[in-house]
Amino acid sequence: MNQTIFEEKGIIFNIQRYSIHDGPGIRTNVFIKGCPLRCKWCCNPESQNIQIENMLDADGPGSTPVGREVTVREVLEEVAKDSRYYYRSGGGVTLTGGECMVQPSFACAIMEACHEYHINTAIETTSFATSEVVKRFIPLVDYWLMDIKHMDSEKHKLYTGQPNDLILQNAKYIADHHPDLTIRVPVIPGVNDTEEEIDAIAKFADSLGKGAKALHLLPYHRLGEDKYRRLGRSYFLMGLEPLSQERMLQLKKVAEKYRLPVQIGG
């Protein structure tokens, strides 16, 4: 066993047990800090900067630092506590964030260590990274959950701060080289909730290689709204109403024209 991976350090901002919507079974989500995108609807704005920062407490005048530096060993000690839940349910650990590819050595070390302990791995990622980074991840990830937000690069840049060409290019590569890729679409009112926009993403997902296995439509929610206030930032989508269940079902129908199974929610 490569012992040095356990000493690898990185910055996380949360470890959340009993997560059941980010990959199969009962999982523990490890939230890795830092993200190259700035999605306007992001529900974890405290994840975006890689640096540790202060956030006001939800119910009081005090504030708490978000983010802490930990070793892979410390992460494993925590996530291994639910090992028996993973075995029972077919679950494991999901790296989310933030964007785990922002701290590639740390993320890869966690996954390698998980495999040493026979813990299944998943990542929830936008895969906005160099092809070298993507290649390092391929053998370490058991379930790959990848966000695609928009097929129109201009709009993608407008709403996330980055164009989409690198993401789409990586998606193709991953589908060709990884056996289990799920494409996830956060469906945001006014951003990508027209039938044409969903159709375009579904069509692209359909065109991917044999590794692409499913398409998830994730309805927009406002759970992150208050965090912007607590971080002293403004929320671009303030007051935006989530989509109705009926509308989500209509969009699901649109996406179901293609070969991939479609579900609402993770």
Binding site: Y18, I20, H21, P24, G25, I26, R84, Y85, R88, S89, G91, G266
Partner: peptide, 16 residues
């Protein structure tokens, strides 16, 4: 997935 996870939560609590 919520139901299955819930069942597995019970099963595992009992394993424990």
């Amino acid at each position: 997935s919520g139901i299955e996870a819930f069942i597995n939560l019970i099963r595992t609590y009992f394993d424990e």
